[in-house]
Design a protein around this nucleic acid. Structure first.
Length: 490
RNA sequence: GGCGACGUCGCCAAGUGGUAAGGCAGAGGCCUGCAAAGCCUUUACCCCCAGUUCGAAUCUGGGCGUCGCCUCCA
C-alpha cells in the first residue's frame, strides 16, 4: 500500500510502526457552530482511509479530538449570552449527530480538550523545563521556535522565510515573532484553569499534541487533517511533541485538499459555505459521499448542487443494476439454460473490477479510480443481462451484485437498493381492482399482475395502464422485463 | 513578496513517458402497446511556446491563467 506523505512530499510505502496495527489521529473541529461540507470532506477522506486500512487487515486505533475551548467558542458564547461550555456542548452533540448521518464511523476515542487540561499543562511544563518554552510576565507561555532545530519539517518551510509573515500582536509578549502561545493567561469572562503560570487556558496547538501523546503515544503512524492545518497547526503540534518527548511525532502526515465553491475555498470567514446538515437535509449521505469520492482526496474539490444531483443519478443507476442482477438471479424461467460462456464473462468482469478497485485503493486511496472500476462493472453487468435473454446465471449474477454492494460499502456508500418486499396496501388495491378476497400481499400482487397480463393480451391498454397507475400511486413500478413482469418500489 | 499545487470533452474527473478511464448532461438509434430499465452510436490535436526523447497529457525551461498556505480555518 502506498500513501502520499505530505511531509516527505512523496508517495511512500506504508508500513505501520507496529506490525499489523495502525494508530491514526485526525484533528477534529472547533465546536462553535455546525460544521460545513468542507470540514466534512476531510472527515470523509479519513473515514474512507480508515475503512480501507481495516479492510486490508490492519487493527486501527483512530482518535479524533473535539476542540471545545477556543477564542471562537468564547466569542460565540458572548454573542449569544451563554456560557462557552453550553455552546461547545451543543455543537459537539450536533457534530457527532451529523457525522453519523454522513455515515462516518465514530472514532475509537474522542477526547475533549477541556477534559485534558492536566496532560497539556504537563507537556507545557516539560517544554519550559527543557528550555523550549518560557512564561511571560502576563502569564502567557510561549514556545520558542528557534529552540527547535527541526521546526518547519512538517510543512516544508524554512524558518527564516517565515519571518516575513510573522508579527507580534498587541498584548503579546513574545521574545521572537515566530513564537506561539502554549498557554494563554486568563482574560475576564473566559473559561480558565489553574496552572503553574496562573489561571488561563491552553493554546490550540497544545491540545492536539497532548491528546495524541496520551491516547496513542508518539510517534503515531498517521496524522491527518485539512491542508490548511499543515501550517501552522501541525507544524506547531509536532514541534511541541518532539521537543517534549523526543523522537518523531508522526511517522506520516496526510492532508486533504480544500473544498471549493465556484473556485474559491469554502470557509466560514468568507461566508460561502454550506453546512453538512443543510446538505444532508436535502440529499442522501450516499450521494454526497459519492460526489466527494469521485475526486482524489488531495485535489481541490469544486462543490455544486448540480454535481450532487448528478451523483444521485449515478447512485440510482448502480442500485438499479444491483436490483436487476438480483431479480434476474431469482427469476430464471423454467427449463432455461444459462449460457456458460456469458456467465464466465460476468465472473471474470467481477474479478477484474474487484482487483482494479483494490489496486486503486492501495495507490494512495485513489477512490475516483476505484469507483470507475465499479462503474465499468455495472456497465458489463447490464450488458450481460441484455445478452443472456432472460436466462441469467444465478450464481454469477448474485456474486456480481454482492461485489458491487461490497465495494460501495467499503467506501461507506449505502446504495439505495429498493426493498423487494411489497407493502400491505397492495391487498386493498387488489380487492378494489380485481376483487381479490384474501389477505396475502404476494397473492394480491400476483392477482394484479395476472389481471394486467390479461388486459394486455386483449390489447386493452387503457385497463393495463390504469392498473399501473394504481400502483404508481402507491410508490410502486410495474416493469416488463425479459424475465417477466415485476413490481418494485419506485 | 516567500512557499506549494493545479490547468485533460458542455460540467466534473482519473491517468506521471508508448497514440486519452469513468460519472453527469446533450444528440441520434434499438428494445417496448406505451412506459420503466437497459443496450448501441456520437464530441478531446490533454492552456500556449520551446526543448529532451524513437516516442510526452505525462520530463525540462519559459509564458499565460487559477487556487491554496504564509493570520482563525478541515
Amino acid at each position: 500500500m502506498k500513501i502520499y506523505d505530505s511531509s516527505a512530499r512523496a508517495k511512500v510505502d506504508f508500513e505501520p510502526l507496529e506490525p499489523g496495527k495502525v494508530r491514526m489521529y485526525v484533528c477534529g473541529p472547533t465546536v462553535y457552530d455546525q460544521i460545513h461540507i468542507g470540514n466534512a470532506r476531510t472527515f470523509l477522506a479519513f473515514d474512507v482511509i480508515r475503512r480501507w486500512l481495516v479492510a486490508s487487515g490492519y487493527e486501527v486505533t483512530f482518535v479524533q479530538n473535539l476542540t471545545d475551548v477556543d477564542d471562537k467558542i468564547i466569542r460565540r458564547a458572548q454573542e449569544q449570552g451563554r456560557t462557552a461550555e453550553e455552546v461547545a456542548g451543543e455543537c459537539s452533540e450536533a457534530f457527532i449527530e451529523q457525522m453519523r448521518r454522513f455515515n462516518v464511523i465514530d472514532p475509537d476515542i474522542r477526547p475533549r480538550a477541556t477534559k485534558e487540561i492536566g496532560p497539556m499543562i504537563g507537556m507545557i511544563k516539560g517544554l519550559v523545563e527543557g528550555g523550549h518554552a518560557y512564561a511571560a510576565d502576563n502569564g502567557d507561555v510561549y514556545f520558542s521556535v528557534r529552540s527547535d532545530a527541526r521546526y518547519g519539517h512538517v510543512s516544508g518551510r524554512d524558518v527564516d522565510s517565515l519571518l516575513a509573515g510573522a508579527r507580534i500582536e498587541a498584548g503579546e509578549l513574545k521574545r521572537d515573532p515566530l513564537d506561539f502561545a502554549l498557554w494563554k493567561a486568563a482574560k475576564p469572562g473566559e473559561p480558565t484553569w489553574d496552572s503553574p503560570w496562573g489561571p488561563g487556558r491552553p493554546g490550540w496547538h497544545s491540545e492536539c499534541a497532548a491528546m495524541v501523546h496520551r491516547y496513542l503515544g508518539t510517534p503515531i503512524d498517521i496524522h491527518g487533517g485539512g491542508s490548511d492545518l499543515a501550517f501552522p497547526h501541525h507544524e506547531n503540534e509536532a514541534a511541541q511533541a518532539e521537543c517534549c518527548w523526543g523522537g518523531d511525532f508522526a511517522n506520516h502526515w496526510m492532508h486533504t485538499g480544500m473544498l471549493l465553491i465556484e473556485g474559491e475555498k469554502m470557509s466560514k470567514s468568507l461566508g460561502n459555505f454550506f453546512t453538512l446538515k443543510e446538505v444532508l437535509d436535502k440529499h442522501s449521505a450516499a450521494a454526497l459521499r459519492l460526489l466527494m469520492l469521485q475526486t482524489h482526496y488531495r485535489s481541490p474539490l469544486d462543490f455544486s448542487f448540480e454535481r450532487l444531483q448528478g451523483a444521485e443519478s449515478s447512485l440510482s443507476r448502480i442500485a438499479t443494476a444491483v436490483e436487476n442482477l438480483r431479480w434476474a438471479a431469482g427469476h430464471v424461467p423454467q427449463g432455461a439454460e444459462p449460457g456458460a460462456q456469458l456467465a464466465a464473462g460476468l465472473v471474470a468482469a467481477t474479478e477484474r473490477a474487484s482487483a482494479a478497485f483494490e489496486e486503486a485503493m492501495n495507490d494512495d486511496f485513489n477512490t475516483a479510480e476505484a469507483l470507475a472500476a465499479y462503474f465499468a462493472l455495472v456497465s458489463e453487468a447490464n450488458q450481460y443481462l441484455e445478452r443472456c435473454e432472460g436466462a441469467a446465471d444465478p450464481e454469477a449474477a448474485t456474486a456480481c451484485a454482492a461485489s458491487i454492494l461490497g465495494a460501495f460499502a467499503i467506501l461507506g456508500i449505502e446504495l439505495p437498493v429498493r426493498q423487494s418486499d411489497l407493502p400491505l396496501a397492495l391487498v386493498g388495491v387488489a380487492q378494489g381492482l380485481v376483487g381479490y378476497g384474501g389477505d396475502d400481499v404476494d397473492e394480491a400482487a400476483q392477482a394484479i399482475l395476472d389481471a394486467r397480463a390479461q388486459a394486455r393480451a386483449a390489447k386493452d391498454w387503457g385497463r393495463a395502464d390504469a392498473i399501473r397507475d394504481e400502483l404508481t400511486a402507491l410508490g410502486l413500478l410495474i416493469e416488463d422485463t425479459a424475465q417477466g413482469t415485476r413490481i418494485r418500489r419506485a
